[in-house]
C-alpha cells in the first residue's frame, strides 16, 4: 500500500533528517515509526502527504509515486492526526469532523450521516457534541475528535503523529484500546509515530525503529523483542523484553505450539480464561493465590486444557527468547 524507496530528506542542505530508508506497508496494517526524539519520524511521516518534500528517493501509494499526484487531492485522501489535535477553534465539533467531506463537496445529508456514524463509532453522543466547541472538551475527547476528523472522508491511509502523546497515561491507555477497536472495524493502512516502545508494541503490526534518520529494524513487535538486530535495538526495546512479550503473545499463540495439561474437574478453585487473553493476564492469574487451576477455553466455551507456570515459561524460551523467566520469591 505504502512503499518507501531509498527515501532521504536533507533540510536546508545540511541536516540529514532521513537517510536512505526503504520499507513497505501492507494494506490494512498499522506500522509504528518508533525512535528517540529527532530521529526523523515526523519527517518520514510528513513526506507521505507532501507536507515535506522528498530530497531523494520515492514514496508510492498503491504503486503510484506520490510526487506525481496533486498535493491537495493526495491530502484529502489521507487522514492526518497530530499530537496537539489541530482542531479548529472557530468551528464546532460537527464542522470540525466534516471539514474534509465539506472540502470534497459532499451534500448535507451525507455529511450529517457520516458525522453520526463516526461519533457513535468512538462512543461519543453525536447530538451532545454537535454544537460544542473544541475548548469545551477534555483532552481525551479532543483527541478522539481529531481521529474522527481524520476518518471522516473514509481515506484508505491514515498518518498519525504521536496522536495520543499529550494524554495522561490512564486516558491514553483507554484511547489506544478504543482506537484498536475502531481499526478492527475500519481496516485502514496506518503510519503511526511514537517514541514509546510500549505504545509501539500495543498499536503496531510492525515497528520501524529509527535512529539518526536511519532505519534500524523493521519487524513485527514480537520479532523485534525476541531478535533485536543490533545493540541499539535491544537497548531501545529495553531490559524487560520478556514482560513486553507477555503482552504481545496470547494463549492462542501458545496453544498452537504447546500441549496443555489435562484439567482436573475435582479442583474447586478453578478459573477459566479465554484463549484470546494475553500471557500477561494469564500469568497474573497463575500468581493469584486463590486460584489453583486455570482452564483455557475457546470462544465457544470448549475446554482446551489447563495451563500452569512451567508451560508459559517453556513457551517463551522456545520462541527465540534469550532471557528466561525467573522469580526470586
Amino acid at each position: 500500500m505504502i512503499t518507501y524507496e531509498n527515501v532521504s530528506k536533507v533540510y536546508n542542505g545540511e541536516v540529514k533528517a532521513v537517510d536512505d530508508v526503504s520499507f513497505h506497508v501492507e494494506a490494512g496494517e498499522t506500522v509504528v515509526l518508533l525512535g528517540p526524539s529527532g530521529c526523523g519520524k515526523t519527517t518520514l511521516l510528513r513526506m507521505v502527504n507532501g507536507l515535506e518534500s522528498i530530497t531523494n528517493g520515492d514514496i508510492q501509494i498503491d504503486g503510484k509515486s506520490t510526487s506525481a499526484l496533486n498535493k491537495i487531492d493526495l491530502r484529502r485522501n489521507i487522514g492526518y492526526v497530530i499530537q496537539s489535535n489541530g482542531l479548529f477553534p472557530n468551528m464546532n465539533i460537527e464542522q470540525n469532523v466534516t471539514v474534509v467531506p465539506d472540502l470534497l463537496g459532499w451534500d448535507r445529508k451525507k455529511k450529517g450521516d457520516r458525522y453520526n456514524y463516526l461519533m457513535d463509532l468512538v462512543g461519543l453522543n453525536p447530538d451532545q457534541f454537535r454544537k460544542r466547541y473544541p475548548h469545551e472538551l477534555s483532552g481525551g475527547q479532543q483527541q478522539r475528535i481529531g481521529v474522527v476528523r481524520a476518518l471522516a472522508a473514509d481515506p484508505p491511509v491514515m498518518l498519525m503523529d504521536e496522536p495520543f502523546g499529550a494524554l495522561d497515561p490512564i486516558i491514553r491507555e483507554r484511547v489506544q484500546d478504543e482506537f484498536l477497536h475502531i481499526q478492527q472495524e475500519v481496516h485502514k493502512t496506518i503510519l503511526f509515530v511514537s517514541h514509546d516502545i510500549d505504545e509501539a508494541i500495543k498499536m503496531g503490526d510492525k515497528i520501524a525503529l529509527m535512529k539518526d534518520g536511519k532505519l534500524m529494524q523493521y519487524d513485527p513487535p514480537a520479532d523485534m523483542l525476541s531478535q533485536p538486530k543490533n545493540d541499539f535495538v535491544s537497548q531501545f526495546v529495553g531490559q524487560d523484553r520478556t514482560l513486553k512479550r507477555l503482552n504481545i503473545h496470547t494463549l492462542a499463540d501458545l496453544v498452537q505450539v504447546m500441549d496443555l495439561n489435562e484439567s482436573d474437574a475435582t479442583i474447586e478453585e478453578t478459573k477459566e480464561l479465554l484463549v484470546t487473553s494475553s500471557l500477561r493476564d494469564t500469568l497474573s492469574l497463575i500468581l493469584d493465590q486463590q486460584v489453583r487451576q486455570i482452564i483455557v477455553v475457546d470462544n465457544k466455551g470448549n475446554n482446551l486444557g489447563a495451563i500452569d507456570f512451567s508451560i508459559v515459561k517453556d513457551y517463551l524460551s522456545t520462541r527465540g527468547g534469550t532471557e528466561s523467566l525467573s522469580f526470586s520469591s
Partner: peptide, 15 residues
C-alpha cells in the same frame, strides 16, 4: 495563528 492549526489545515488538504 497556532502553527499546529495551520499544519492541520494544510495536512487535511485545504488550499
Amino acid at each position: 495563528v497556532d502553527p499546529q492549526i495551520r499544519d492541520a489545515a494544510e495536512g487535511i488538504g485545504m488550499k
